[in-house]
């Protein structure tokens, strides 16, 4: 598994087995105490506790995925199972062994104690969702993704009646000249999902541009022109918001019957248990 294989799309090998890395280097403070040569557990399963519930998962699995397998929902915007974690949205912040850490970048380990559904963490997550709403231009009533949007769904989950922060209404450029894709930066939350998943000829179709408050998503028009209908649809589907749309196709389902209109985000995971 390449952890940082995004050297412009070229794969870099990792010589150290990942489970060993995660086993030994789970946090800066713990590193001090950990003996690097500690025997790796023969069994690949580890037990950990989330809000008092005992869970079991494959050692080294990222916490959000491991939790989902155990019927515990940890909200995410920038993560999908099987994707190299980005740790950029921070909505999955949990308290792990007493420290605030992102659930999508922290591998589970034996005996881990995790706080997930607590008033403090809910407040932090709601804060992040509200920040995202004011940082971009999210006009839900006019968005094709409304009802299927994960950001909006988290707004519903946390009953955001109004963000506590002032709206910034930043001017953002839309890109309509990228083949089958229409890129609306007004709605982008910079989750990097498209950067990590959409490739043509082994090259990245999406990348960031700029830094800090001026960071924005960028699309390679030459490469985007080569995307097939299927790839364009996949790009649209991987976008958690309505930033990547397939041209000439807005939506199939009317408002009222879409994914999150009736069912809270995460409810499908919580139902499993």
């Amino acid at each position: 598994m390449g952890l940082f294989n995004n050297l412009f799309g070229k794969k870099l090998p990792v010589e150290t087995p990942l489970d060993k890395v995660q086993d030994t280097v789970s946090s800066a403070k713990e590193v001090i105490k950990t003996d690097i040569q500690k025997e790796v557990n023969m069994s690949n399963k580890v037990k950990f506790i989330i809000d008092g519930k005992e869970c079991t998962a494959e050692k080294g699995m990222m916490l959000v995925d491991a939790a989902a397998e155990n019927g515990v929902y940890i909200p995410v915007l920038c993560h999908m199972k099987g994707m190299i974690p980005a740790g950029s949205c921070r909505v999955c912040t949990c308290k792990i062994n007493g420290r605030n850490m992102a659930g999508c970048t922290t591998p589970v380990d034996e005996g881990m104690k995790i706080e997930n559904d607590t008033p403090e963490l809910t407040e932090l997550r709601k804060t992040i969702v509200e920040v995202l709403f004011v940082e971009g231009n999210h006009f839900c009533p006019a968005c094709e993704k409304s009802g299927n949007c994960e950001l909006q769904a988290l707004g519903y989950k946390y009953q955001m009646m109004v963000p506590r922060f002032p709206y910034s209404f930043p001017p953002k450029a839309v890109e309509a000249g990228a083949g089958k894709i229409y890129l609306d930066r007004n709605r982008c939350i910079m989750c990097k999902k498209c950067i990590r998943t959409v490739h043509v000829d082994g090259k990245n179709v999406f990348a960031f541009r700029g830094r800090g408050a001026h960071l924005e998503i960028n699309i390679d028009k030459t490469l985007a022109a080569k995307l097939t209908d299927k790839q364009a649809q996949e790009a649209m589907d991987v976008c958690p918001v309505g930033s990547i749309l397939r041209k000439e196709k807005g939506f199939d389902e009317p408002i009222g019957t879409r994914k999150y209109d009736k069912h809270q985000i995460g409810s499908e995971i919580e139902k499993v248990s």
Binding site: V131, M190, R211, A213
Partner: peptide, 14 residues
Amino acid sequence: SCGSCVPCRALNHI
């Protein structure tokens, strides 16, 4: 800020 994570990019601005 590199801008990659939400709080550093946006909350600082606010």
